[in-house]
């Protein structure tokens, strides 16, 4: 059976797993954003803790995904929940780091001006620092998304479904069609999300900041 024939006959199975894959990625990135951006902003206000927290997040990043999934399996059990917990942990670092550096690197002249003309700390944050750091923050989200798409294939191992299911099935039965039916949509998904978020980044970058990053 060729790959094309296989795809046509297993169309529903591929689609179902693709949707589940998007769910896994979407939820963990969303949670990652909800945790990382406020935490990143908090760290810019408490720089002494920043080194420690960023190092910790960096360490989590170095733990192999399989080990983490194993832990999650033992602690939480099988299904989507442990997979999302693990993927969220991995999504945090790039967003956190980019939020932190993006805001820290906002030129001092802007924050001095904003304080000097009478903005409160919150106004400085929302009217000046976040808009200027936004392109950097979104780049962090883009990086996270692209590699969470590929890491999410591991989630198939603990019964969370997704394109990983097809790949693991293929690997255990020596069926290339299954492997490719999981790998190719996963790669295409990564490319598409990368492009979409890149576009979002362009749209959300204030016109005054396009071209030259300040």
């Amino acid at each position: 059976m060729s790959l094309i024939e296989f795809s046509l006959s297993s169309y529903n199975e591929v689609l179902k797993n693709l949707i589940r894959h998007v769910e896994l990625v979407g939820i963990s990135i969303l949670l990652g954003i909800l945790i990382s951006i406020p935490l990143g902003i908090f760290l810019t206000r408490h720089k002494r803790m920043a080194g420690l927290v960023l190092a910790l997040a960096g360490t989590i990043q170095t733990i192999p995904g399989l080990v983490m999934l194993g832990f999650a399996l033992i602690l939480i059990g099988i299904g989507m929940l442990p997979a999302i917990a693990v993927l969220t942990l991995y999504a945090i670092l790039p967003i956190l780091r980019n939020t932190y550096t993006g805001i820290t690197e906002v030129d001092k002249s802007y924050t001095e001006a904003s304080r000097g003309i009478g903005m409160t700390n919150m106004q400085t944050l929302f009217k000046v620092e976040i808009p200027i750091a936004l392109p950097t923050i979104i780049t962090g989200i883009r990086l996270s998304t692209v590699y969470i798409v590929s890491w999410a294939t591991l989630a198939g191992l603990i019964g969370a479904g997704g394109l990983g299911d097809l790949i693991w099935t293929g690997l255990s039965t020596y069926n290339t069609n299954y492997i490719l039916a999981g790998a190719i949509p996963s790669a295409i998904l990564a490319l598409i999300l990368n492009g979409l978020i890149g576009l979002l980044e362009k749209i959300l970058t204030p016109r005054g900041l396009r071209g030259s990053r300040v």
Binding site: V128, I132, P206
Partner: peptide
């Protein structure tokens, strides 16, 4: 201090115009 600064104009050497605003 915030209210006070709003009643005093402030111009700095690095200009500090907000690049995200017109």
């Amino acid at each position: 201090p915030v209210e006070l600064r709003r009643t005093i104009g402030y111009v700095i050497q690095q200009i500090g115009l907000f690049p995200n605003m017109t």
